[in-house]
Amino acid sequence: MKPAKVIGNVTLSQAASAFKGARWLVMSPQGPDELTGKNASGVSHGWTPVVYDNLGAGVGEDILYVEGSEATQPFGFPIPLDAINVAILDQIYFKPQL
């Protein structure tokens, strides 16, 4: 599970049938600079994964997302998915040891 900030969402016109009614969020993985506020924008440079969401996270919220085959675990049917939102965070306490 990795912390990330929701920076947008995606709507699909055509998608695999397993994704009927799915909600997609664009993430920015949070590094130490983003979590400690040194990078005020909160958006890290680098890749921005799109994750499946059924918890209803909005733009600007911090979440935990999971990648890999575990992402398909909550579904009882085969689904071509590798990233899912597992938690919307209330508080983050992060004090890196220098």
Partner: peptide, 11 residues
């Protein structure tokens, strides 16, 4: 370990 996080809406 360098911090913790809390959540109410989650799996």
């Amino acid at each position: 370990v360098e911090g913790h996080a809390t959540t109410t809406v989650s799996h």
